[in-house]
Amino acid sequence: MTMPPADRIAMTVDLLRRALREEADAVLTGDDRVDRDTAARLLRVAPQTLDQWRKLGQGPAHYARGWDKGRVSYRLHDIAQYIEQGRFENGQPDRIGMNPE
């Protein structure tokens, strides 16, 4: 039986939190956000890749703050959702909606 998308995302968020506990310099905010560099490490891409994805309107949803929108952060749920959107099952994309809950 296939796990519902919301459950898969929740499980992936838990796994991401565990990975963050092992990083000495990782900071997780009270509302489950991480900075760009930490998000890049979790996704195993270069920080510049996240920058490019943002410019192209791709990648996980993000938050931008500051006078030049230069302080970018990512919520763990959005990173997990992005990961799960790339899942394939039986050779077919197992795409989930943008609001699985």
Rank of each mutant, 00 (worst) to 15 (best):
Y82V: 04
D14S: 08
D32N: 13
L42V: 09
Q58N: 01
P60F: 00
I9R: 00
R54I: 10
M98G: 09
T29N: 13
P4R: 15
M98T: 10
V45K: 14
D37P: 10
G57L: 10
R41T: 03
R21T: 00
K55N: 15
P5L: 02
R65A: 15
I96D: 00
R8T: 01
L15E: 10
Q48M: 11
R75D: 07
G66Q: 07
D14Q: 09
R54S: 09
A40P: 02
P4K: 15
L76Y: 08
A46S: 15
Q85P: 07
P60N: 03
W67A: 15
L50P: 13
G97C: 06
G30W: 06
M3S: 04
T2P: 13
P60S: 02
V34Y: 04
V45S: 11
G57D: 08
V27Q: 12
A39C: 07
R87F: 00
S73W: 10
D37K: 05
R33V: 04
V27N: 07
Q52P: 03
E84G: 00
L20Q: 05
N90V: 08
P100N: 08
I79N: 00
G59S: 13
R36S: 08
R33N: 03
P5F: 00
L16Y: 13
P5S: 08
G86Y: 01
L42I: 11
A24L: 06
R36T: 07
P5Q: 02
A80N: 03
K55C: 13
E101D: 14
R71C: 09
Y74T: 07
A46Y: 13
L50S: 13
R41M: 07
W67H: 15
A10S: 09
I9T: 05
R71W: 05
H62Y: 15
G59L: 11
A24H: 11
V45D: 12
Q85S: 12
K69I: 14
G30E: 08
L43I: 10
R65N: 15
V13I: 10
A19C: 02
A40T: 03
E22K: 02
D51L: 13
E22F: 01
R18C: 07
D14M: 02
G66F: 04
L43Y: 09
I83G: 01
L43T: 08
A19W: 08
